[in-house]
Amino acid sequence: MRKDYIARGVVWIFIGIGLIITLFPFAWVVSLSLRIEKEVFTAILFPEHVRLRNYIDAWVKFDFTMLFKNSIVITFTSVAVTVFVSALAGYGFAKFRLKASNFLFHLILSGIMVPPIAVVIPLFVFMRRLGLFNSYPSIIFPYIVFGLPIATLIFKTYIQNLDNDILDAARIDGCGEFRIFLRILLPIIKPALATVTIFTFMANWNEFLLAVIFLQDKKLHTLPLGMAVFMGQYSAPWQLIGSGVVISILPVLLLFFILQNQFIRGLTAGALK
């Protein structure tokens, strides 16, 4: 019995240390974000003076209004298109007997294996030829294409397990195929819609590599890009970097605490398939 207590103690010490390591950087960044310049390097967690104005200064310096606007436009558009297009495809693969179905599905699925960096150069060339370089579409299309494979897989798997009865009944009633998709299928695949939305939302909201290559115009910068650029300046004041970090992670954290389970399910859904 005593051995049991010791073992349990060791386990909780391990978890405690893990928890401190996980949370300390957040606590430190929050503390940093509130400091006056003089205390940036002197305090560890609790500064003597608190300066809330850092947040206003950081907002202006980073131009968060613009960063949020760009991130929202780019993420929302690419997620909406990805969800719609891959739901269509998932339905097509799941419920129609097509000769090329298997081949085409595996073709799209193979996209999972391609790292974005392996195609950035030709995409760069392609976007310039299309005259799209340095515009919203130049980043939205790559985001869609890299979201498609897993999204299609999730939708196909989910739709395959649905009963045919409802769809057949609607077909007998004379509903067109597209109407069936919109009116009957979409409402019953809500869980899959949530999963794919969260998954692609997080991937695109946080994406950096494609953004740094295709969005060279400062006016198009997204949140991660704006943070990286600001960090790159040697004169960037630490306390403002702190406030900037807090501002940029707060929205996602709030969403996460409201929709915890959906988030965890959404983010790990593609991993084990």
Binding site: V85, L88, G92, F96, L98, F181
Partner: peptide
């Protein structure tokens, strides 16, 4: 069926 897959 093919039309559903086409955009993707």
């Amino acid at each position: 069926g093919y039309l559903f897959i086409l955009p993707a």
